[in-house]
Design a protein around this nucleic acid. Structure first.
Lengths: 168, 168
DNA sequence: AAGTATAACGTTATAATGTTACGTTTTTCT
DNA sequence: AGAAAAACGTAACATTATAACGTTATACTT
């Protein structure tokens, strides 16, 4: 399946600008998720919503069992299945990403957009930036095509030091 | 750390040409590993060598516990630590790669080369091709640099259908 | 509105993956 | 030969993820 190729410039959703209002950011993410679910005609149930809310508490990846611990506060009966089922739903509808290198999850800021999965991950502070680099995507797709390989999913996870952490 | 940027064209190590002589391929890989270890002045012990040999039995990723089962044939005392220690060694010396999306391992055909980790993975037959796409690497490094991010490691794992599997 | 199909969730058990800690053996280096 | 370092043995355990099956809630049809 050839990818959508919008003529946009490379952009990034984080690293966070100085005055980042996260309360607002989280609220906005949940609103976007609700809209996306309406469009997709699927149900963002209270449980799923709560998991998504927990994921959006910051811009660092969360592990499933941490999520579980946090979920238990309001949801004493929660067990691994509870979390993994919610995560499966959120992944399927592109509301969160899975970071394979970390076995962890992070909210997706742009649920409607073509969904790739290009991440910069700071080893030190753990902050993750999601890239939307169309050129990169296209270059990969083209090289693959040259080898007769038809791409259906890409995982790009780049580790290193973010600007803040380099200074320290 | 700025990457080595050799003016090479994009290349790939597999998908396998029609008449691929795997016995020869495996032997060659082990020879290369031995040489690399000599250069690095580290020891490719019988255990490590045996694990590497098992990994090179084909061009599909192997899971650690599968490796363990296979290792037990000649090595009844083997336990997870046995395998993971060998894998740690092999990874550290760039003799194998870890595929994060699969929790699996695969031999590296070019131990001496600058070591990135760009893979095409066929969902159907499981065959993996390692790419050495310098442009891709450079593009990532540059975009990251533009965000003040200093790359130290990249994981690129592309899933899809290889040429053979598309035909079926 | 009742009946039925489907989706979501609860519950228990277990599988798969990976690590820690500590002791012993082997190799290397002086 | 003796000391230091590396490799390996062994047991326990931590983390991550899924399977199987039953119940409850929601949506869909008539």
């Amino acid at each position: 399946m050839a990818p959508i190729n919008r003529p946009e410039k490379a952009r990034t959703s984080t690293f966070l600008p100085a005055g980042h209002d996260h309360i607002q950011c989280q609220r906005q993410a949940l609103r976007a998720a609700e809209q996306q679910c309406q469009l997709d005609k699927v149900r963002l149930t209270p449980l799923r919503r709560e998991v998504l809310e927990l994921i959006w508490q910051n811009h660092r990846p969360v592990k499933a069992y941490d999520l579980l611990d946090r979920l238990k506060v309001n949801h004493p009966g929660a067990v691994p299945t509870t979390v993994y089922r919610a995560l499966d739903f959120l992944l399927e509808h592109d509301l969160v990403h899975r970071l394979q290198s970390l076995n962890a999850f992070i909210g997706c800021g742009t649920p409607g957009d073509p969904h790739r999965g290009q991440f910069l991950i700071c080893r030190q502070c753990g902050t993750v930036a999601e890239l939307q680099n169309t050129d990169l995507h296209q270059q990969i797709t083209e090289q693959a095509a040259g080898l007769g390989f038809q791409v259906d999913n890409e995982t790009i996870e780049i580790f290193g030091a973010c600007a803040d952490c380099q200074r320290t």
